[in-house]
Structures are given as structure tokens and as C-alpha cells.
Design a binder for these strands. Structure first.
Length: 199
DNA sequence: CCACGGATGCGCT
DNA sequence: GCGCATCCGTGGA
């Protein structure tokens, strides 16, 4: 399998473009020499100063500061006692990012089952908090350069093709402002399951 | 000090 | 499938 880590230039673009193009890529976590990974099937874009729903919309704070830094960095934050992970996008003129919301599990599935205390594949990484639990993404991984393998958290591209899969869009989940923006992009779990089987 | 959120899981229909 | 209680870090007063 030919695969390589996505570079900073990939992330240094408009968050909506980056979000759409991250569908089908693989989020990889290295943990104690083991690989836990899954294909990104749901993601949301947050367009910084132009987007009332963005964490960065009201300016920098001690927790959202990674969004104001360079693209390709992680932003790990907590909400309702769960962790979520964003990837910083764009350039320094606008603090934008994308929220990884769901994965199709690929490797390290037994570890994910252990960390999640769930057995069904669909319960492992079907939400931003679940992803962080399954991949053991904690605040220690906040504000790190995820274009470097040493970070042990990065996104790779393989030869998976989205051919035959349509990327759907909808309003974002769980927000109270800017509900009209269709910045959530996803492909249904079942369709990915069928396609993986046919490879 | 308090109100609340980029969520989750459970306990019902 | 849907509503709701719980969650606790964060930020504004």
C-alpha cells in the first residue's frame, strides 16, 4: 500500500476545501508501538472569524489558541467531559479548523474495543468524543504538528478511491449559531463498509 | 461563582 | 429512533 503523511500545504487552505478532501483519508495514532487507525467518513469545517459557530470567532483564549497558529496542528479540547480533535487549517489571517467527527475503523480494532468498552464496529468511532477515546487522543496531543510522524498522530493518504461514493453535506451537529451553513461533510458508514469489503 | 457547550449513553417509545 | 440527564472544563461576571 502506497501511503504518505499529508503535508502542511494540504492543510494551509480554506477549511471547507480541506474538510471535503479529508473524507476518505486515514487518521493514524501510534500508541506503544501499535497502530490504531480509521478512515475519515465525517468532518466539519469551522471558518474562523466569518463563522459564529467557530470556537475562534470571539478571539483567542487560553484554550483555543492552537486555532490561531499554523495549519497542520492539532487542537484538542474538552466538552461535556469528552475530548474532541480539530486540525488547524488555512493561514494565519483566519483561525480556522476542521473537526473530525467519525471514522471507519481500519486497524487496532481490538485496542479500540478495549478503550471504548464496546464491541460493535459502529460504536467505536462514530462521534468526535468516541474517536478521542478509541485513539487515546488526550490534551497531551494538543497543539502538536500532525504533519510529523514523531507526533504519533497524523493523517495519511492511501489509494482508496471515493469513486461511486457521493460526499453529502448538511448543517453541523450540536451548534446553536450559524445553523444554516452546510459545513458538515460525510459518507454513510454502510457505504464505506460495502466498499471496503469489495477491495 | 455560575451558566453552558463543536457530546454521549441510556431508557424509553 | 428520540429525548433527556449527566458530564466538567472553560470563560465571563
Amino acid at each position: 500500500m502506497s501511503s504518505q503523511i499529508l503535508k502542511k500545504s494540504f492543510y494551509s487552505r480554506n477549511p471547507i476545501i480541506v474538510a471535503k478532501e479529508l473524507i476518505g483519508k486515514i487518521l493514524v495514532r501510534e500508541l506503544n508501538g501499535e497502530i490504531i487507525s480509521g478512515r475519515i467518513i465525517e468532518i466539519e469545517a469551522y471558518n474562523g472569524l466569518e463563522d459564529e459557530a467557530a470556537h475562534s470567532y470571539r478571539g483567542i483564549t487560553k484554550s483555543n489558541f492552537p486555532l490561531f497558529g499554523p495549519a497542520g496542528y492539532s487542537y484538542v479540547y474538552s466538552i461535556h467531559s469528552h475530548h474532541c480533535v480539530d486540525i488547524v487549517t488555512g493561514d494565519l489571517s483566519n483561525p480556522t479548523g476542521v473537526l473530525i467527527r467519525a471514522l471507519y475503523p481500519l486497524s487496532g480494532i481490538e485496542l479500540m474495543k478495549k478503550f471504548r468498552n464496546k464491541e460493535r464496529l459502529v460504536d467505536l468511532t462514530s462521534g468526535p468524543g468516541k474517536i478521542c477515546q478509541a485513539l487515546q487522543i488526550t490534551k497531551e496531543l494538543n497543539n502538536l504538528d500532525i504533519t510529523k510522524k514523531e507526533t504519533k498522530l497524523y493523517i495519511i493518504e492511501d489509494n482508496f478511491s471515493l469513486k461511486g461514493l457521493e460526499i453529502l453535506s448538511s448543517p453541523r451537529i450540536g451548534i446553536s449559531k450559524a445553523k444554516e451553513k452546510k459545513y458538515r461533510f460525510y459518507i454513510p458508514f454502510q457505504l464505506v463498509l460495502d466498499k471496503q469489503k469489495s477491495i
